[in-house]
Amino acid sequence: MQQYRIAILGSGNIGTDLLVKAMRSPHLTCVAFIGRGYTSPGMNKARALGITCSDQSIDYIPEHADEIDLVFDATSAKDHALHAPILKALGKQVIDLTPAKVGPMCVPAVNLDSSLGSSNLNMVTCGGQASIPVAFAIGQTHPEVDYLEVVSSIASKSAGPATRINLDEYIETTEKGLQAFSGAKRTKAILNLNPAVPCIDMQTTIFANVKNPDIEALKRVLDPIVEKIKTYVPGYKILVGPILDGDRIVVMVKVRGRGDYLPEYAGNLDIINCAAIAMAEQFAMNGGN
């Protein structure tokens, strides 16, 4: 079978970590690592790995359209809004790691199959990838979810200037994702940055107020979902719960990254990349195009 060929747009931390993950995958071949210049550490890494690099940004793709099956966009929401129509016109499968929300939201453990039909998939947010599977399980087992809340703590070091500037967008996108997948009437996302050294692993707590909480039923649905997540995010772990604390359901999740390009503590960045790779592999196994 011909290898499924992927290109990575964006040579920052996310793009570089994706590259390392893609190279490990038996289903994917990275044919281009594309940025805006050659001087970043990501470009150095890609070159050292022997990958074709380009500084032509989106312009590279139309010129090499025949060589690429799928494009990961790890640039920014603003840039992806410009890239999306170009990639669509070329008929490329796109996995969007920015919060641009051009395509439908995708969380592989929850909606892998239904996502296969969309040419542009949005990977929500890191907090979303960690919490939505739990929120989904709560929604599946409780017909009335009044309120769902997700609190994530990440290492201060794992949040660069772009993350900090876009904190409000993170909250908004995560809340939308939670609502869409759980059916909760109201949702809330909270993010804490903790500067402790050694860096803390990403930790996410899901709280829910539901009518007639049924922890046993929730466990039955949640357990296989968690097993599914673990197939693509090995560092995903339920730390506490599900428990009933007063009248709220509590589930605490820890995500330890694989430590590919990004360090282990950056589970928040690892999980979104792992999810993106899992989707790309699925496209590859479905025979690509």
């Binding site: 804490n192 903790n194 402790a196 930790q203 709280f207 730390l239 509590v250 605490m252």
Partner: peptide, 13 residues
Amino acid sequence: RRIIAGQEDLIIE
């Protein structure tokens, strides 16, 4: 553990 304001969930842990 140098827990900061906003990390109330970690008290449970």
